[in-house]
Nucleic acid binder design. Structure first.
Lengths: 153, 153
DNA sequence: CGCAATTAGATTGCACACAATATAATTGTT
DNA sequence: AACAATTATATTGTGTGCAATCTAATTGCG
């Protein structure tokens, strides 16, 4: 039988924070999927809707900054959402390089349905207190910031 | 100007734990990418290697249980890794339905290179103490378990 | 003003992720 | 033993993610 030494620990799957984050993201997605199916959205599409429900008429770049996604991901995603009549993409008159994204009436209206369906079910599935939730959220945001900083430098 | 009420909170992107997890996973991937490029691996491929370095000769199903991935993801991933001569896929003689995955000499040897390159750089990028790391890890694993349980029931 | 540098999106190519489905092997039941 | 049910993997189709590259519009600098 293989013996374990401290040298093994850094390469053990179970102890890796990154894998915990990666697999928890997938677990979240599996919980969101049946809920978002009822809205006709995927999870990344739902994120775009959250951004636009907070502030409509943003450019692709501004959406990307909020979601940490680039045009290679957003352009086809937004085109699919336009085909679903959730939003419209129009070139800015002031700066023809920019594409402004605005919600359709249908896209705006979806907000109330989302509010009724998604947050309650997610809170239930997470099964933790608001305090735990805030604690974990804060620590993850700090970690994300340190990781982003490490990529820059 | 739009007024904010408590009813808005559950639909605000910035406060969502799921988005914190989702975006932190991407941030991790951006840190891992240049490191794993030096090993010729993607992050999911690296995860498979971690599993096999711990126990070689597992079936596709057993790898999937450890990584929370299904055959639709693993089959092409493992085929690419076989094409890279990192591992071999062979039908089990005892049960012809199973495909057993075993490391090549090259795949086994990659472990020492990975150990030298990856964990030190990741620890540095995360920039947190072992205690913080363990705290966050434990909380995420518990959360993942609750989410998985919610999908079952 | 004129042109190089920058910026915003779009495109292409590759690699996941996963639902749905298909196929082949094995097990369980009678 | 026969056959229905289960199990392990493979396949197909859709939708992300992201690097690399391309094009068009704008800005900045001499």
């Amino acid at each position: 039988m293989p013996k374990k030494t401290t040298a093994d620990v850094p390469l053990q799957l179970r102890s890796q924070l990154c894998f915990a984050v990666y697999s928890t993201a997938h677990a979240f997605n599996r919980v969101y999927k049946p809920l978002l199916d009822r809205l006709g959205l995927t999870y990344p599409q739902y994120l775009v809707m959250l951004v636009l429900w907070e502030r409509d008429g943003l450019s692709v770049k501004e959406i990307g900054e909020r979601l940490f996604l680039d045009s290679g991901t957003l352009t086809p995603l937004l085109k699919r959402m336009e085909a679903l009549h959730l939003l419209k993409r129009t070139r800015s008159a002031q700066d023809e390089r920019q594409v402004l994204v605005t919600l359709s009436a249908q896209g705006s209206a979806l907000r109330e349905k989302a509010r009724a369906i998604v947050p309650p079910a997610i809170l239930d599935a997470m099964g933790c207190s608001i305090a735990e939730l805030a604690d974990l959220h804060g620590k993850l945001v700090k970690l994300r910031e340190r990781l982003d900083a490490a990529v820059e430098g």
